[in-house]
Design a protein around this nucleic acid. Sequence first.
RNA 1: CGGGAAGUAGCGCAGCUUGGUUAGCGCGCCUGGUUUGGGACCAGGAGGCCGCGGGUUCGAAUCCCGCCUUCCCGACCA
Length: 470
Amino acid sequence: MAGQSVLTSQNEDFPKWYQDVVAKAEMADNGPVRGTMVIRPYGYAIWERMQSEIDSRIKATGAQNAYFPLFIPESYLHREAEHVEGFSPELAVVTHAGGEELAEPIVVRPTSETVIGEFMAKWIQSYRDLPLLLNQWANVVRWELRPRLFLRSSEFLWQEGHTAHASAEDASQYVMKIHVEVYHDFLETVLAVPTYLGIKPPSERFAGATNTMTCEAMMRDGKALQMATSHELGQNFAKAFDIFFQNEEGQAALCHTTSWGASTRLVGGLIMAHGDDNGLIVPPAVAPTQVVIIPVRDDEEVLQACQSLFVELSRERPSRIVVDKGRGSFGRRVTDWEIKGVPLRVEVGPRDLAQGLVTVVRRDTGEKFAVSHVEARTLIQGLLETIQNDMYASATSFRDARTVDVTTLAEAIEAAQSGFARLPWDRVGASGETRLNAEAITVRCLQRGDGTIPASDLEDGLVAIVAKSY
RNA sequence: CGGGAAGUAGCGCAGCUUGGUUAGCGCGCCUGGUUUGGGACCAGGAGGCCGCGGGUUCGAAUCCCGCCUUCCCGACCA
C-alpha cells in the first residue's frame, strides 16, 4: 500500500488537489447558498491562530479594535464615485425587511470605508484627535461569480483597518508600517510564506484609493496570490464623508485616510504555498496540533509510553500535542495526520520500546529520527523551530527558482506559464497590460529595482512583477 | 451573460441506447470478531420522493416536453 496516494497529485490537477485537501483535511465545506463557506473546526483553529498573531501586531502599531454594522445604507456607497463603481457588481442588497419593502435599500457590507468614514467625521474634531487608528474583525459579502473555498467566497472573514491622519506623510508612513511590520512580518515569521512587496499599478488599485500596496506570494503551481493589501485613500473618502479636523492654526482641514486588510484567503494561501501530494503542511506557528503521538499498537505498554511522553511534552506546549488513540490501522492514522499537515509525528511501537526509543518524523521533509524518550523532548522543541525556518527557506527557493528577469512582453508571457516574470515597467504600459490580460496574466505589483516599495507608480526605473493569479 | 458537462444513498459512480419483478457497485457509516511498523480483513446490517413538474404507456431512473440546480472554461475581486 505504500505510496498509494489519497489525493489527486498537484502535477496532475492542481485545482483538484486543492479541493481534495480542503475536504480531506476537514478544513471547510461549501455552504448551502452558492459561494458560501462553512469553515470546519480544524480550518477555523488555524484561522484563529492567524487572527491572534495579526491582531497583536496591529495593536502594537497603536490601532484599537471596534465594530461597525453589517448593514450599510445604500446611499453611503454612492458618495465616493470610484468606490461605488468598483463594488456595485458584487453587492448583496437587502430590499425587504420586517415584511415590507424598505424605503432605502440596505447593502451588506463589501468593506466598511463608508460607514467608518461617517463615524470618523463625527468623532474627529481637532488635530488632537488624530491619528485615529481603528481596526475591526468582521465578515463581509461580495457576490462572486466563480467562488472557491477560502480563495474567493461570497462571504468571508477578515480584519479591516481604517485610519485617519492629519497629513499625507503621516498616513503614508503609518500604512507602510502596517504593510511591513504587520503583514509582511506575519507572513514571513508565522505563515513562513515569502512575498514580494510592492504597489499595484493604477489598473489594479482598490476602488477609491490613491495608492494600493500588496504582498504577493507564489503558490506551488506558480500562480500568484495576494495575501494582504494596504491602501492610501488620500482625501477621497474624507471629502465624501466630510472628515475634517481643526488644525493648530484653527483652520478646518481634510483628513487623509487609509485602509488595509487580510482575510480568510490567507488560509487558502497557506494551503497552496506549502502543501504537497500528501496533503497540508502547516507551519508550527499556526498548527493547532504541533505534535501527534501515534501508538503503533493498541497494547497496554505502548499506550502507557505514549501517555507519559504526552505528559512530558505537554508541559511545554499545552493543548498543541495529542495522542491518537483512535481506531483503525497504523497506516491509516499516519495518512490522516499527514493530510492535516501536523508538523511532527511521534511513533511509539513495541520495536521502539524494546530499544528504549521513539521515532520522530518531520512532516515537511519526511525525515525520521530514532531517539530516546528523554531526548525526544529537546529534539522536538528544536525541530519545531527548524521546521518553521526550513519551510520559509524552501518556499523562498521555490519562488526564486520560478521568478525570472525578462525584457520583453513575449518572454514575460512565456515565463508566466510556470511562475513570475520581472520586467521593466516602462516596457509594459497600458497596451502591454492589455496584451498580458489577454493571456490571463496581470501585473501583480511594481517594485523598485532593489525590491523596495516605491512611493508611486510614476517613479523611474520601476520593475513590474507579472503572473497568472488566483 | 457566452461556451461545455452533469443531476441516482453522506461522497464517488453504474444502470438509460433497446421501458418490465425487490435500482446496483466502491468508499464511508452501524454491530460483532480478527487485526494494527504506511489508507487492514471477515461476517452481518442501516441508509433512495432515481433534481422538480407534466406527458406517453398496462408499466418510466430509462422515452417526450418544460423548469430548476450544480460543476468546469471565458469578462470582475481579499
